[in-house]
């Protein structure tokens, strides 16, 4: 059995350990491809770890794609520990796919370097935050046993909610990043971040309500916003 020298293996107890932050961080540090290999569904050594992993990896992939990375760079595949040939197939396929995509931030990615890494940093902050982690964490509970009111959701419904949060979180954290060293108006932010002005206003007002940003001054009848003193 021989296979590509492209891969480096990192041992985990279970794919359930895959933290979205670790995945985002790996790409920020220049990884070109991340393949998570876990047990077959229904045969997880840790009962349900691989299901949890799938939810988190799907969500992270969506987030990183939204940040401008080619989603093919993050993949979750499954096999049993007895399937050596399948292991070879998975790593060979993945290596071929990543070689076709080329290095991170190249033509295969929507956003080039160094902007891509800035975006990935923002994505990482969002993936570390409570909103996405809470919803993706609760996903199996919502789908299996339902919420407190015994409303059971379909996976599709949760995914739709998650997709909405991905967009909101990316926008909110982009605004916070843009205000890091300067103050700006809604119009300026909207132009810089390519978010429609009404949406930008909505995010700014939301951030203001929670104390993350505050009005600095009014210039030419336009309010300028800066980061809040103590969010």
């Amino acid at each position: 059995m021989q296979y590509t020298t492209d891969i480096r293996v990192i041992r985990l107890m279970c794919t359930g350990r895959m933290d979205p932050v670790i995945m985002a961080d790996a790409f920020i540090h220049g990884l070109d491809g991340l393949l998570v290999l876990g047990c077959l569904f229904g045969e997880c050594h840790y009962v349900s770890g691989n299901f949890n992993a799938r939810h988190k990896i799907n969500m992270t992939g969506e987030m990183l794609a939204y940040a401008g990375m080619n989603p093919g760079r993050l993949s979750f595949r499954n096999l049993s520990s007895a399937e050596s040939e399948l292991f070879v197939k998975h790593v060979t396929d993945f290596s071929t796919e990543i070689r076709e995509l080329g290095p991170l931030g190249g033509e295969a990615d929507k956003v080039p370097l160094p902007k891509l890494k800035e975006n990935l940093e923002i994505a990482k902050t969002a993936l570390a935050g409570p909103k996405l982690r809470w919803v993706v964490g609760k996903k199996p509970v919502f789908v299996d046993t339902g919420n407190k009111y015994h409303e059971v959701f379909t996976e599709h419904e949760i995914n739709r909610t998650l997709s909405g949060i991905v967009i909101d979180e990316m926008a909110t954290h982009s605004i916070l990043a843009a205000l890091q060293n300067k103050s700006a108006s809604v119009k300026q932010l909207a132009k810089e971040l390519e978010i429609p002005p009404p949406e930008t206003l909505k995010y700014i007002l939301g951030l203001k309500r929670r104390g993350f940003v505050e009005m600095e001054s009014v210039k030419d009848h336009t309010p300028l916003y800066k980061l809040g003193a103590s969010p």
Binding site: C14, R17, R133
Partner: peptide, 30 residues
Amino acid sequence: KGCGVCAATCFRHALGINSFTDEQIQAQIH
């Protein structure tokens, strides 16, 4: 059993797994 689902989920980043902490895994990648 140390699967780490809790650590990968905690939104307060309060939990880790002995010998498989975030820092240790990231140190390998870095």
